[in-house]
Simulated assay, not measured.
Amino acid sequence: MTMRVRPARAEDFPAIYKMAKLTGGGFTNLPPDKATLVEKLARSAASFEREDDEQSGDLYVFVLEDAKTKAIRGTCQVFGQVGVTQPFYSYHLSTLTQSSPELGKTFRNETLTLTTDLEGSSEVGGLFLHPESRAGGLGALLARSRYLFMKLHRQRFGDRTLAELRGVMDEAGNAPFWDALAGKFFGMTFPDADEFNAVHGTKFIADLMPRTPIYVALLPDSAKAVMGQPHPSGRAAMKMLEAEGFAFDRYIDIFDGGPTVTCPTDQIRTIRQSDVHSVAEIGEGGKQKVLIATGRLNSFRACCATIGKVPKKGLCIDRQTADLLEVEVGDKVVAVSRNGST
């Protein structure tokens, strides 16, 4: 396999733009808008070039590259800290219990409260794998490479990491949750609002959204049915996140009602189970299947590999893996089993 994950560059824009047009809408972090994507790549370049290691509002964009053909087959993103330049809004689904002694009844009503509880968290998102490359474990490589990058640059990320999943919408891009709630206050369709958010940010939410809790019972069944549910195309991503330790804590997206899942950063499975090793030999490799990464910031590389272990010295990797990672004997790498710890 000649596929690897590396930091995105300005010259990757055409490939990333083509993938953005394939998402079908609702991917706020990967909008099919040229100016926004150019700005994202510029912001990412500045984040990779920043020298100090404090947590900040960085954006790191990565691509999945065929090192042999130079074709770009996927992309993903990591945000160092959400809520730095604009508030990070979510709805929190809570339960309000009310009793009436006169009626002899107790009612438990669910409410949606606009909140910025998740500010300060890091975020993984923007993951898209080209439809022609959705096989052979490439999705797992792309997704888990983000956690290996976080492991190698731990001080740049917060104590909690979140992921937002796209909510349910129809083939035309209309979202039942938006139509039932936020759409009443903005006078625009969900596709229009989602595009505006992707380009301009969420300040308009604070300007126009009601601050009082919303009683879920007042929403139509079409909206209640999709709250906290991922888009059918995102169910595989949800399973991968859950396998990493992410859990739904009753936070949902204010636009489409999709679930926001969270996990303590140090408890993310790939971060927790990965270990740092030295490259002891470059030869025939071995039989243990791993995800392996190396490099600081712009020199970060990640790929799939089969490794062996040299007692008390480190890992044995094959020449192809060494070339993909751009490492030599004595260099440090971080590795994790494709199924568990190394």
Score class of each variant (00 low, 15 high):
335 A>M: 10
47 S>P: 10
42 A>Q: 14
298 N>K: 13
2 T>E: 13
6 R>G: 12
270 T>Q: 00
26 G>F: 02
9 R>A: 14
298 N>E: 10
249 D>T: 08
341 S>H: 09
48 F>H: 05
42 A>D: 13
169 M>A: 13
94 S>T: 15
279 V>R: 06
49 E>I: 08
31 P>E: 07
8 A>Q: 04
175 A>I: 11
114 L>R: 07
59 L>P: 05
189 T>A: 10
247 A>S: 10
242 E>N: 06
25 G>Q: 14
23 T>Q: 12
70 K>R: 12
221 D>Y: 10
22 L>N: 12
38 V>H: 07
11 E>T: 11
212 T>R: 08
22 L>V: 11
251 Y>H: 10
87 P>W: 01
307 I>Y: 02
121 S>F: 07
198 A>N: 05
67 A>D: 10
171 E>N: 14
331 D>P: 12
244 E>D: 06
341 S>N: 13
269 R>I: 02
80 G>W: 00
126 G>I: 03
310 V>R: 05
286 G>L: 06
276 V>W: 09
124 V>M: 08
179 D>Y: 08
163 A>G: 14
13 F>I: 08
112 L>D: 03
203 K>G: 05
152 L>R: 01
67 A>C: 01
149 F>L: 01
119 E>L: 05
43 R>F: 06
37 L>T: 06
199 V>C: 09
193 A>K: 02
284 E>M: 12
